[in-house]
Design a binder for these strands. Structure first.
Lengths: 340, 340
DNA sequence: CTGAAAGCGCTAACAC
DNA sequence: GTGTTAGCGCTTTCAG
């Protein structure tokens, strides 16, 4: 079939153990034989069977990207793709192998995190899409297997988090609106229970208070992050509020911003001439809408890259578990008008 | 550590072989012991170690989704995500495990397809993003390992293809424009050498000839599928052509359509009032542009689902290698005006 | 019907 | 320095 370590051993006239040592850069081996073994391995086109390796090794270096929840998401975004890009860029640069596993909350209930890792011989994982209520959050905290969560905040001796300062980011976004002269701001809110919503809400409060503005309850449109809800919410809003009751819509996601713009168009209003709108996420689609939407870029590719680096460092004992806060990027485009 | 087959055997008072047989639905085992073993396995929370299994088994059922090329792509689309959704939907429904592997052309040159499969104990693969010039295309044809390519046409005794009839789809799209009264049509072309471009071109020719229309060379704007190229191309076009030289732009991708609309807006023209534009792919973003873009939905999620089903059927000998042509979906939205 | 045992390819103790 | 060998957890003959 394929060329195994045995074949290399035979061809090089040594034992399999020696081949293994040579190829894994062990110290106690003569440069001579190592060179010879590496050469024959190359000639034969040998590549180690990673499955066999991870089965036998005690300190495996196999790292996994575990994606949760996106199967159920009705919202389409490019987070997973961008994240994969980031992880693999690091992986390619450093010659590590990443396996991807797709799960959801139901699977988490059926199969424990440890079990999942055991089944696939995962020694360290990057987790994306975890909800704070997901079973794996607790499991991660208890596990002695190093892992990195992206965005989800989980504390544990071997758990790192890579995230943005969403509060500061949303503060900055809000501040930007205010700096452009907007004082009558409506917040288009995401799913109430979601951590991501709460953080963004805190950021909005923070910025508004600092500027002596109030965020009253009737100035908040609640949604479950669905675009249509934002559209409907805005339409409803203007049934009970005068047109000049608001000058800007501060949205907790880009999709909500798109929904808001849709509603405004239906009402015959123009963005940004009549109303300003900002989003959050930095989805690529914000470049193709009309107008292009000012937003905060979550920098998800960078998160993937840093998560992979951090995980590898943890596995090799170079770094402790930590919270890594990456810079966010306020991306000013065309959906905000300066007023006043 | 984790509960192994040994633990189950001990607890149930049988041998590991018996446990294995019971759990894998072998015939030659008494219903009594099977039931008992299954019960104890459940009580202990046993899940098989898939790595160990795939190492030992002769007829492994481990299937992989191999994604090529998207790391280099500057174009962001949701193909990979949708594809994964489709594959995993089938996988979850049928209790099969899919591993995902990310590669590119460079990796294909460095490591053979067989080697990749061997390393990860892949018994059958779904491949997406292969270019016709990629080394793996030949490798697939020669391999006795069943596989399914998506969109890329590869012929081989164990190679299936899941695709659309892109020629017919583009024909239909073109015909739609014509049926709306458009006769002066400009084709916005993708990368010349790409198979996907050639097929679409053929479809366009076919429809136009059937309607007694000519697709002359000066009515084609060439691009490499980049949005900005389409924008520039249209701007350039109108430097040498009169405004009424064209009534509709037939684009080989949604991104190109977005680029065209951008150009028309810059020129102060409105879509679809002044010009009609159609795209191809069915990206989600076509729902958020202004206007929403009439396009052909490639139905990528369905492709993933059917590819997974087909691969499993091939692995289990229920189906031969075949070319599976899924229906495409002409999605009429708001970017075409009926004229004449 | 079930147990015992070989072996998948590799790593890591343990010898020499 | 290098060879030998015992597993990693599982499937699959081969006996009985």
């Amino acid at each position: 079939m394929s060329v195994t370590i045995q074949d290399v051993a035979k061809a090089a006239g040594v034992s399999v153990g020696t081949v293994s040592r040579a190829l894994n850069n062990y110290a106690d081996i003569s440069e001579n034989t190592r060179a010879r073994i590496i050469r024959t391995a190359q000639e034969l086109g040998y590549h180690p069977n990673l499955v066999a390796r991870s089965l036998s090794t005690k300190h495996p270096r196999s790292i996994a990207l575990i994606l949760s929840g996106f199967l159920e998401e009705t919202i389409i975004n490019d987070f997973e793709t961008m994240l994969m890009k980031g992880c693999y860029q690091f992986a390619f640069e450093h010659g590590v192998d990443i396996s991807i596993h797709v799960i959801n909350s139901a699977i988490q209930r059926r199969k424990s995190y440890e079990q999942l890792c055991y089944e696939h011989n995962i020694s360290g994982a990057i987790l994306f899409g975890l909800k704070t209520t997901d079973p794996y959050c607790e499991a991660l905290a208890d596990s002695k297997r190093p892992c990195v969560t992206i965005d989800t905040e989980v504390k544990g001796p071997h758990v790192s988090n890579v995230t943005l300062d969403h509060i500061a980011a949303f503060d900055e976004l809000t501040q930007y609106l205010i700096s452009q002269g907007h004082r009558r701001i409506v917040l288009v809110h995401g799913r109430k229970e979601a951590m991501v919503s709460m953080e963004r809400l805190a950021g909005a409060y923070q910025a508004m208070e600092r500027n002596g503005l109030q965020l009253t309850h009737d100035r908040i449109i609640y949604t479950n992050f669905l675009r249509e809800e934002a559209t409907q919410g805005v339409l409803d809003y203007f049934k009970t509020h005068a047109p000049d009751d608001v000058t800007a819509f501060l949205c907790m996601s880009d999709m909500l911003a798109i929904g808001v713009i849709e509603a405004l168009k239906r009402l015959g209003r123009r963005v940004p001439q009549d109303y300003s709108v900002v989003g959050y996420d930095g989805l690529d689609v914000t470049n193709y809408t009309d107008p292009r939407i000012t937003t905060v870029d979550q920098n998800i590719k960078e998160k993937g890259y840093e998560a992979a680096r951090l995980l590898l460092d943890m596995l090799e004992g170079r770094r402790q578990a930590q919270r890594l806060v990456l810079p966010h990027i306020l991306t000013v485009k065309d959906s905000v008008r300066r007023i006043g």
